Simulated scan of single mutants.
Amino acid sequence: MAGHADVYLTWGEPPAQVKEEIDWIRSPAERGGRTVRFGVRLHTVSRDSSAEAWSTAYRD
C-alpha cells in the first residue's frame, strides 16, 4: 500500500493504534522515497439526546 497511496486515512481509532498504523505505512513509504500524508475520517450523528444519537449510530 505504501508504494501506491498518497494519503492514508484512519477512522478515529485510539491514538496508540493510529500511531501503529502511521508507522506501518510511513516506514516502507520512506524506504521507497515516498511521502504519505495522513488524515482522520470521522462521522458525527446529531440528535436531540445522546440515547437517540447512539440508537441511530447502531441502527442496521
Results as ranks from 00 to 15, higher is better:
residue 40 V to D: 05
residue 43 H to G: 13
residue 40 V to L: 05
residue 29 A to D: 11
residue 31 R to T: 07
residue 23 D to G: 06
residue 56 T to H: 12
residue 25 I to L: 12
residue 44 T to H: 10
residue 20 E to L: 12
residue 22 I to C: 06
residue 45 V to G: 00
residue 43 H to N: 14
residue 57 A to I: 08
residue 35 T to A: 09
residue 43 H to V: 13
residue 31 R to P: 02
residue 32 G to L: 12
residue 24 W to D: 10
residue 44 T to V: 13
residue 35 T to M: 07
residue 17 Q to N: 13
residue 40 V to G: 00
residue 22 I to Q: 07
residue 18 V to G: 02
residue 29 A to R: 09
residue 54 W to P: 05
residue 52 E to D: 13
residue 49 S to L: 01
residue 23 D to V: 12
residue 42 L to W: 02
residue 34 R to L: 03
residue 49 S to E: 00
residue 50 S to F: 15
residue 39 G to V: 02
residue 57 A to E: 07
residue 42 L to R: 08
residue 30 E to I: 07
residue 57 A to S: 11
residue 38 F to S: 03
residue 18 V to S: 00
residue 22 I to F: 06
residue 50 S to Q: 15
residue 26 R to Q: 12
residue 39 G to F: 03
residue 21 E to D: 11
residue 47 R to E: 08
residue 54 W to R: 14
residue 41 R to H: 07
residue 43 H to T: 14
residue 41 R to I: 07
residue 32 G to H: 03
residue 46 S to Y: 13
residue 37 R to S: 09
residue 30 E to S: 07
residue 19 K to C: 07
residue 17 Q to H: 14
residue 32 G to V: 02
residue 26 R to N: 09
residue 57 A to Q: 11
residue 21 E to I: 11
residue 16 A to L: 08
residue 34 R to G: 03
residue 24 W to S: 10
residue 23 D to W: 06
residue 26 R to C: 04
residue 26 R to A: 13
residue 19 K to P: 05
residue 39 G to S: 00
residue 34 R to C: 04
residue 47 R to C: 10
residue 31 R to L: 08
residue 38 F to C: 01
residue 22 I to M: 12
residue 22 I to N: 02
residue 53 A to G: 01
residue 39 G to W: 01
residue 51 A to K: 15
residue 53 A to F: 03
residue 17 Q to R: 15
residue 44 T to A: 12
residue 48 D to L: 06
residue 48 D to M: 06
residue 57 A to G: 05
residue 46 S to N: 11
residue 54 W to H: 14
residue 34 R to Y: 02
residue 34 R to T: 03
residue 35 T to W: 06
residue 47 R to N: 01
residue 56 T to E: 13
residue 25 I to G: 02
residue 21 E to S: 09
residue 38 F to N: 00
residue 52 E to W: 03
residue 20 E to C: 06
residue 18 V to K: 04
residue 50 S to C: 12
residue 40 V to K: 04
residue 19 K to W: 07
residue 23 D to Y: 08
residue 51 A to G: 13
residue 17 Q to F: 13
residue 45 V to A: 05
residue 23 D to H: 07
residue 33 G to K: 06
residue 23 D to Q: 12
residue 53 A to N: 00
residue 16 A to W: 08
residue 24 W to G: 07
residue 23 D to C: 06
residue 57 A to R: 10
residue 26 R to I: 01
residue 16 A to D: 10
residue 32 G to W: 04
residue 36 V to D: 03
residue 17 Q to E: 15
residue 31 R to C: 00
residue 53 A to Q: 05
residue 33 G to N: 04
residue 32 G to A: 13
residue 41 R to G: 07
residue 18 V to F: 00
